[in-house]
Design a protein around this nucleic acid. Structure first.
Length: 577
RNA sequence: AGCGGGGUAGGGUAGCCUGGUAGCCCGCGGGGCUCAUAACCCCGAGGUCGGUGGUUCAAAUCCACCCCCCGCUACCA
């Protein structure tokens, strides 16, 4: 039994997450964490709200409220939605938690005391009317190279050149339009250069890191790491603990990444009463840590996070596996809040139950390339896969048992060679699904589940037990017993993806214990014999035939319903930058 | 521009690392079954694997160059 820590990128609480965020981080982590629980491993899944940083401070300022008021509301709302989505966290924390804030300060002081932090004075744009330093992206002006008028302070979107805000012609503040002045300000930098060698050695020799993460990270290292500022000139955040850094806060990334550790600490302290329990996990080199993120996040997890762990001088276990998905697009476009492109988590739940979404998103998980979400795919996956292939198999088998075998699972089924072979085949399939989960190949796992259902349908068609119930009851009974075993395997293997449906199926099979207590080893067991089963009910319902014609309208209605339930802070939220 | 990922039948995708007659799902055509949510099963048509050139007995797979899509490029998070 291994200790496994599963985490996912912390949702930034300026918004309700959309489907892309959900499948890239939270949901994928949940699939995996659940699968590992069935393996009998000791699994912790922690994540939480990322609530500091400039966008949130600005939004609060615009409304004349404290940032914390804003993040309280959104944190609570997000958490409610994730629960409705059946994401089974050990703890969903937040970066405003006391444990987290203390942990970040301690950690950064360790890094400081180990000599990895140095001070440097920069000249940065400052908006005199907003009275704040402007992050590069909050300054716009004319590109000195191509003349594009909306070049940002860090880069020109038109010609792609990297810029420094001082280079912009006619620079202005994105918030108020005023001309920024350039002012001196001191910041604290982590010297990543000094960790370059250790990071390189770690990554090059890493046995489990997926290729996309490894290649990307190594190319960063090849370019050479640069020092990176860990402080910011804003009020909303964790106060920088360094001597002389009174008015500075910690840059959100250095804050949020450490949440992986602090949330583990918080959870285990609550669970065991021992505030140091977390060290048994994070300081144990045998612990496996899994990170679920989108492709835009790779270097933060593969370089900056491990760099911090190394720089602390404590014996942290470094990331074991980073699963970085590509992007989910909506009708071929990127999700966009401002243009209303996409589906948000609360809207999704107004359209279909959580299990449907969980299954659909698992099926279109962008594991190798960007994946498109379209209503026609949604419709196909729900109706053809969930309903026809899986749901209908469940229903036809259970109905046969209910009507032809007196509503009772066989007591002493006599299994012939053909049955025996079938059982072996599907058990092998089920084990291969487990293997896919372990490799974090979620789509392949769902593919395997479907193929088990298809095999079940084929076997039923070829053996025709409905014909044999009178002429050869023994054979009909044994075939249905094998089919019951197949449903048992479907319930087990699909539990990480569609826990509700799986649990219902488990009960319809009359099982005595709960599926959440099951283990993968049950694959080689039979379901309980001789037990009564309840009258079967459809596991899923189809989307109506006119769904595709009405999809846009359905989304509009769902959007309106969801909007009414949103907390005040989200009703008309707009993010700048 | 640099770096990383991707481009496979009408649609959606697997295979690529570790070369050896291109697999699966939907859709389409034909047939079967009637237990089941008009569901299920079988058979068939449909692909010169983005382009060009190279390595090899053999290339979707390896190499080079080119075209197109996505991301990142260190102060958005």
């Amino acid at each position: 039994m291994a200790k496994i820590i599963v985490t996912s990128a912390w949702p930034y609480v300026n918004n309700v997450p959309h489907l892309g965020t959900l499948i890239g981080s939270l949901l994928s982590a949940d699939f995996f964490a659940r699968a590992m629980k069935l393996s009998g491993h000791d699994v912790i899944y922690v994540t939480g709200s990322d609530e500091h940083g400039t966008p949130i401070e600005l939004e609060a300022r615009k409304r004349g409220i404290e940032p914390r008021v804003l993040t309280d509301q959104i944190h609570e709302y997000d958490l409610k939605l994730f629960n409705e989505f059946n994401i089974e966290f050990s703890l969903y924390s937040r970066t405003e938690s006391e444990v987290h804030k203390e942990f970040v300060k301690e950690m950064l002081m360790k890094i400081y005391n180990n000599g990895y932090i140095f001070e440097q004075t920069d000249i940065l744009p400052y908006c005199p009317s907003d009275k704040m330093f402007l992050p590069d992206r909050y300054v716009e002006g004319t590109c000195p190279y191509c003349g594009y008028e909306h070049a940002r302070g860090d880069q020109c979107d038109n010609c792609g050149r990297l810029l420094h805000p001082t280079e912009l012609i006619n620079p202005h503040c994105v918030l108020c339009g005023a001309t920024p002045i350039f002012k001196e300000t001191k910041h604290w930098f982590i010297d990543l250069r000094r960790l370059q060698g250790r990071l390189e050695e770690w990554l090059v020799n890493h046995k489990h890191m997926p290729d996309n993460v490894k290649k990307y990270s190594l190319s960063w290292l090849e370019t050479g790491l640069k020092p990176r500022a860990v402080t910011r000139d804003i009020k909303w955040g964790i106060p920088a603990p360094f001597p002389g850094a009174k008015d500075k806060t910690i840059y959100v990334w250095f804050d949020a990444l450490l949440g992986y550790v602090s949330a583990t600490k918080e959870y285990l302290a609550m669970k065991t009463g021992n505030p140091d329990e977390w060290k048994k996990w994070w300081f144990d080199q045998e612990t496996r840590t899994y990170f679920f993120i989108g492709k835009d996040n790779i270097p933060f997890h593969s370089i900056i996070f491990p760099a911090m762990l190394m720089a602390s001088g404590d014996p942290y276990v470094l990331p074991y596996f980073i699963s970085a998905t590509e992007y989910l697009t909506f009708k071929g476009e990127q999700f966009s809040k401002s243009r209303g492109v996409g589906v948000w988590v609360d809207e999704a739940l107004e359209i279909a139950p959580a299990d449907y979404w969980r299954w659909v998103l698992a099926r279109v998980r962008p594991e190798q390339r960007d994946m498109n979400f379209s209503w026609s795919e949604f419709y196909r996956i729900v109706n053809s896969e969930l309903n026809d292939t899986i749901g209908n198999l469940v229903h036809r088998v259970l109905t046969l048992i209910y009507r032809k075998l007196g509503g009772k699972m066989p007591c002493k089924p006599k299994i012939d060679n053909e049955d025996e072979e079938m059982l072996e085949t599907v058990r092998e399939k089920a084990w291969s699904v487990v293997q896919k989960y372990e490799e974090v190949k979620i789509r392949a796992a769902t593919e395997g589940i479907l193929s088990i259902a298809r095999i079940g349908n084929q076997y039923l068609n070829s053996t025709e037990p409905w014909k044999h119930v009178k002429s050869n009851k023994a054979k009909a009974t044994s075939v249905l017993w094998i089919e019951a075993n197949i449903l048992h395997l479907i319930a087990l293997t699909s539990w990480p993806i569609i826990p509700n449906a799986s649990t219902r199926l488990w009960r319809m099979l009359g099982q005595k214990h709960e599926i959440s207590e099951a283990q993968w080893s049950y694959i080689d067991r039979t379901p309980d014999k001789c037990v009564e089963i309840p009258q079967p009910e459809p596991l899923f319902n189809k989307l109506p035939e006119d769904f595709l014609e009405r999809a846009d309208q359905i989304l509009d209605e769902a959007r309106e319903k969801a909007r009414l339930k949103r907390p005040p802070a989200l009703k008309e939220y707009r993010v700048v930058g």
